[in-house]
Write a protein that binds this DNA or RNA. Structure first.
Lengths: 270, 270
DNA sequence: ATCGGAGTTTGTCATATACAAACCTATATG
DNA sequence: CATATAGGTTTGTATATGACAAACTCCGAT
């Protein structure tokens, strides 16, 4: 047996290598947007012939489409994604509240969940004052670091600190603005504060000029199901409105979602 | 070499078997909603051990999640699906028009594309009179047969008849109501009529009590990019409104989307 | 006409995969 | 309380499968 089992997993868990490869290719396509065959070969470091076979298979299965020379993710994923959303209790329990909150505040509202140590947006809604930003596209299109956002930090605050350490160790700190949290010490302090006050704020830590207020949505057994947040420009989100009114609204919404989850949700969250 | 190359593909195109298997498992999970390990084993006819390894891998890659004993599709798919949508020109070009049409008519409006001979919903919007129906969930969550819907038939009408025959041969006719088209003859007649009048109707062919009006959205070179449709109960969708007003509105919307596609769309549709 | 880059096909060997069977681990059953 | 049984996981192993390299085709540029 080969001794270069560089697999992170000590010992047993067998994996299907081809799926990992396929996953990497899909990720590359998503990342490169509309790559050509050669783009992909450069990105993934697998022999041309093999990449070809993978693309052929993935296209045949509907995971990708080729238009002309360009590959892109296939619409089968839209269907699957939609299906996931509708099966996710927190989406069903929270959609209405997100819309209401967006209407009340007039700003962007996000409903997110944690997945593999990152934050995934399940649903978003914008009020009439919400500004159009590519930012929101990015939010929806790719997972974010939990410590970058209000909702993310709110979820982290509910986690066991060891788990937080683990997540951060694995991902490292990526600095997005000069206010981004970039060390464990500061993060832990922040999480303590969040835990104490019941909600988290994000003060230009991810995007300059933008603030958010978020709070976790928890299940009966105190497990984190997700989080909800309001995002707006600093000009509009400041003073008492930022420090008390909005947090109040956000926590109220989270609370209602929690109740919805408990009453309707026969099965476990997520 | 083994001579039982039962592969439908004559001769060459090599495929990665593991991806096909993984795809089948994902499909089974989507279909069964929240299957347990054994449910899946029964569904897919692969040895227990192997299924285990696949699930392990798929979970590790974020394609599925295990909550308790239940497997379900993972939120990574939400992100990917969203990414696909936003890269799809017709979605960007058509979203606004769909919303406007929903507002004008007060009913359900769908923006769909063809994928592997089936119809996939890219976006939908409901007006204030639109009835809540599980039907719409199904529309969004899984591909539909093209000959079942107004939008689908509108797209079929633009295809080469050989292609239509091919699609139908492969999928067969599934009867949903007593009005569903169930033979090629009738379908071809219908497609001719659609081609002549510029739009398609669906008169309780998919769901009893529901009618729709749809039309194709085509690119510069007459290629089909997708379709748009309005759906409402027969009670509201009848007479002149059904036969002329709504078709007019639908075709107008399609037209605007086509213009958007041409002006904004630097790259090819889909 | 010729070249070169991009993409596809094929032969081949190492190895990843799928099976079977053994092995755990909870939950039901006598 | 012991035992059975179903649900789930791990392991050894033969063989089908994937990955590479190199040959090949196609198309646009020079």
């Amino acid at each position: 047996m080969n001794d270069m089992h560089a697999d992170d997993s000590a010992g047993s868990p067998r994996r299907i290598k081809s799926i990992q490869t396929a996953s990497a290719i899909l990720e590359a396509i998503q990342y490169l947007e509309t790559p050509t065959f050669t783009d992909l070969c450069n990105e993934v470091d697998i022999s041309k012939g093999t990449v070809h076979t993978y693309l052929e298979t993935l296209e045949n299965e509907g995971f990708i489409t080729k238009s002309g020379k360009e590959y892109r993710l296939g619409v089968r994923l839209v269907t699957m994604g939609e299906s996931v959303r509708n099966q996710t209790d927190i989406y069903r329990a929270g959609q209405d509240e997100v819309e209401k909150l967006a209407e009340k505040t007039g700003e962007w509202v996000h409903l997110t969940v944690e997945c593999q140590g990152q934050e995934v947006t399940l649903y978003e809604s914008s009020g009439d004052r919400a500004i159009a930003m590519d930012y929101h596209l990015r939010m929806r299109e790719s997972p974010q670091y939990l410590y970058h956002t209000a909702a993310g930090k709110a979820m982290l605050a509910c986690f066991d600190r060891d788990r937080v350490r683990e997540i951060v160790d694995q991902q490292g700190f990526v600095q997005r603005t000069e206010k981004t949290i970039t060390d464990l010490e500061t993060l832990f302090d922040e999480l303590d504060r969040i835990q104490a006050q019941g909600y988290a704020v994000n003060d230009e830590e991810e995007v300059r000029g933008m603030r958010s207020v978020g709070t976790a949505i928890t299940g009966t057994d105190a497990t984190v199901c997700g989080a909800i947040s309001v995002t707006a420009p600093t000009s509009r989100l400041s003073g008492d409105y930022f420090e008390s009114e909005i947090p109040e609204l956000v926590m109220e919404a989270a609370n209602i979602i929690e109740v919805n989850l408990e009453t309707a949700g026969v099965q476990k969250p997520r």
